[in-house]
Write a protein that binds this DNA or RNA. Structure first.
Length: 446
DNA sequence: TTTGCCGGGTG
DNA sequence: CACCCGGCAAA
């Protein structure tokens, strides 16, 4: 009963086959041969093939939103020349500074950020004057400190080559120092995070104490201007001429840590070396000046890919503009693996934005399975150790998002001719099986 | 209206 | 799983 019905319903071709006698074998042979030639096995692959096609369709529209997000981040950060900075391959210290500047400009302005700003502004005059806190009780100590600081700084400023030698020597002692860029940023970030992460939780007061007498003064306008100048005008010319970068190396015995920011190295020395054992009160707030040296680094081609540098710029600004996260100094480092150890969430946001940015550049890889995309989106930070890999996967993040956005969407109608067009409705027997089944054509693929 | 094909039904 | 069709949506 049903076969007759179905054959009868089948239009010209069906009636042709089954009109005389519904011989199952006959019909099955004719159809099965054709189907075996062209269709069946392909139909099973069809499910795999249709996914990229649908993605192709959607990818034309969606990348706007990540771009808008990125631009908006830039606009939030920028007052004068920040987009240019971001576009021109920011150094990591600049990224770091930008991240701080974002929180500064975004009105977050908590005490820590202000203190950071003060430290940064203070860092400019470190070579010309010695900021000895007034908290020193013994005047002799102050004099001694000044004397030593003057000696150290004068020696540093007058003879860079020995400093570099010291740097090289330290690198041999510390094997983790061999990769310049990554380790720099990592150290920088760790220098930051050790404040909040360490067992001595009341760390934010420590920079406040560092600011000492200025802690009572609110973050003034002049300071903001100065910070702005420091952040967005000074690094750029420095980068422009000869690509000279300044780093600070810890001179503590058997340490040799190199940080890109002055306050970072200060904090590192203070927290790691001077304040060991939780002796909070005895921490000296000016001795750290004696345990780091300024290093001029020439910007040489790095092992890590340079294109990651501009991407790390907007990253710290991405997550939430208003309150700084528990680790507000979102690491400027593109090296996510090291950072994900302690703070995965900023890292993930970083990678998300980076993905959204890089999403526009390379053509997406259609071979990425949705499962991989899901795993990327959920667990990208710990696994994204290599830059190219993460770039590819970041595209899949976009695809994932697209799939979520338009799950029940049909396949786009392709420009390619289909069996129906090629052979016509009168030669339906020549169609591929999926076409005859009103499935996606497998003979004339896109 | 035509066309491509998704979703679902039937055996 | 093969086969088929109703119906939707784009062209």
């Amino acid at each position: 009963m049903m076969p007759n019905n179905r054959l009868g319903k089948r239009s010209p071709f069906g009636s042709l086959v089954g009109s005389s006698c519904p011989e199952p074998n006959k019909t099955s042979t004719t159809k099965a041969t054709r189907a075996g030639q062209q269709g069946i096995s392909r139909v099973r692959d069809h499910g795999d093939l249709k996914v990229p096609a649908g993605n192709n369709h959607k990818q034309k529209k969606i990348p706007e939103s990540p771009r808008i997000l990125f631009v908006s981040c830039q606009m939030k950060m920028s007052r004068r020349r920040r987009p240019r900075l971001i576009d021109s391959c920011l150094s990591q210290s600049q990224c770091c500074l930008l991240s701080q500047a974002y929180f500064q400009c975004g009105g977050a302005g908590d005490s820590q950020t202000d203190t950071v700003a003060q430290s940064t502004s203070c860092s400019r005059s470190i070579s010309s004057c010695i900021d000895v806190p007034r908290s020193r009780t013994a005047q002799q100590e102050v004099d001694m400190d000044e004397l030593m600081a003057a000696m150290v700084l004068s020696s540093l400023s007058c003879s860079p080559p020995p400093v570099l030698q010291v740097s090289a020597h330290k690198q041999t002692a510390a094997p983790s120092m061999d990769c310049g860029a990554v380790e720099l940023s990592d150290s920088s970030s760790s220098g930051y995070w050790s404040v909040n992460r360490g067992p001595r939780s009341p760390a934010p007061p420590s920079p406040t104490a560092e600011a000492n007498g200025r802690s009572a003064t609110p973050p003034g306008e002049g300071l903001d201007m100065d910070l702005d100048q420091v952040l967005f005008e000074e690094p750029a010319p420095r980068k422009r001429r000869n690509s000279l970068k300044v780093a600070y190396q810890c001179l503590w015995p058997s340490c040799g840590k190199v940080l890109t920011s002055l306050m970072g190295i200060k904090r590192h020395i203070r927290m790691v070396h001077l304040c060991q054992g939780g002796e909070h009160e005895r921490c000296s707030h000016s001795e750290e000046d004696f345990y780091y040296s300024e290093i001029n680094q020439w910007d040489e081609p790095r092992r890590q890919s340079p294109p990651s540098a501009p991407l790390c710029g907007p990253a710290p600004t991405s997550p939430t503009p208003s309150p700084p996260p528990p680790f507000p100094q979102s690491p400027p480092s593109p090296n996510c693996s090291a950072l994900s150890r302690s703070a995965p969430s900023p890292c993930s946001s970083l990678w998300q934005v980076q993905s959204e940015h890089s999403y526009q550049a390379p053509p997406p890889s259609h071979t990425v399975s949705p499962a991989a995309a899901t795993s990327c989106r959920l667990t990208a930070p710990p696994t994204s150790g290599q830059e190219p890999v993460s770039r590819v996967r970041s595209v899949s993040v976009g695809e994932q998002w697209l799939q979520h956005q338009s799950a029940p969407c049909r396949r786009i109608r392709s420009e390619a001719k289909k069996c129906r067009k090629v052979y016509g409705i009168e030669h339906r027997e020549l169609w591929c099986t999926p076409c005859r089944w009103k499935k996606a054509c497998q003979r004339f693929l896109d």
